[in-house]
Design a protein around this nucleic acid. Structure first.
Lengths: 147, 147
DNA sequence: AAAATATAAGACAAATTTTATCTTAATTTG
DNA sequence: CAAATTAAGATAAAATTTGTCTTATATTTT
């Protein structure tokens, strides 16, 4: 029950970009250095982010990456799904046809339920939230939502 | 961002047990058969569950497993943590010392926040909930909690 | 006491996923 | 043309997950 290192790197890389002046073209080399991640791995990750459309890539000298979608509109859920694929939790969380017990699965509704909650939480934070002053980065949701 | 097959099997196995008359001693062989899981793998899983104390094991002819904790008091979170270990989400979710950016981690609070919500959701369902009539097994939380 | 049955424990192994790395190509700038 | 940078894909190392197998131990039945 963890996110991948790759998603973690992606989020940190995008946060680094969001901290630069708007429109700055960022090199993978710098993104990697500032997030303590392997440059070659980060390069792969940003290729994937570029293919998804949330960042734009420029080849050549002075090439690099810029945001193609505003950091305010890139949620944590978006990033995780681009890098790791859909959030399923277990095999039968989304549709019954994927469940090996088909119509008779006991835990189907539970996982669908927990998945909904998790996705809402992951969508509640955007990349832009982390480029702001850190003292605002408190545990917002879990204080507001008491269940 | 998935739970392991092992946790899935564990939950299904415990649900199967909860459906039997209270106090029934269940064989791994039967638990595995009724959950479409490999018996030898399920055996390992139940060893772990027994070591944790939530089930009791009996060796020998007529041996097997019974609940040691009431199914009402075994939550999904409990099972997942027994089988897969603590729910962390990312490396810095729990304590800052585990974070590679130490005092300067941008995403620390977010992950701690999302983790809290997820754990609450996983604790909201118990094994006993799935032994009941299936039409009660609707998506309860996500309808109640609107955030 | 012996035979049958079931879990315990741990070594072993296969499969899958994650985490990279490396090389070659393509593109842009100067 | 030279330098810098991403693109793409092959490859590989490492870690984790998913299982299997064997031997031991305990219990019940005969």
């Amino acid at each position: 029950m963890n996110i991948s290192r790759a998603s973690d790197y992606a989020i940190r890389g995008l946060v680094y970009m969001a901290k630069q002046p708007a429109g700055t073209v960022c090199f993978v080399k710098d993104i990697a250095k500032n997030t303590n991640s392997p440059a070659s791995f980060m390069s792969k990750i940003f290729q994937t982010l570029a293919k998804s459309g949330i960042v734009h890539s420029f080849i050549g000298t002075k090439g690099g990456f810029t945001f193609n979608v505003q950091p305010e509109n890139i949620t944590i859920k978006t990033v995780i799904e681009i890098i790791d694929g859909p959030i399923l939790l277990n095999r039968c969380a989304v549709n019954k046809s994927a469940c090996n017990e088909i119509d008779n699965c006991d835990v189907h509704y539970m996982w669908a339920d927990i998945r909904k909650i998790l996705i809402k939480a992951l969508n509640a934070y955007s990349i832009a939230d982390f480029a702001k002053d850190k003292k605002n980065n408190k545990e917002v949701l879990s204080e507001v939502i008491n269940f």
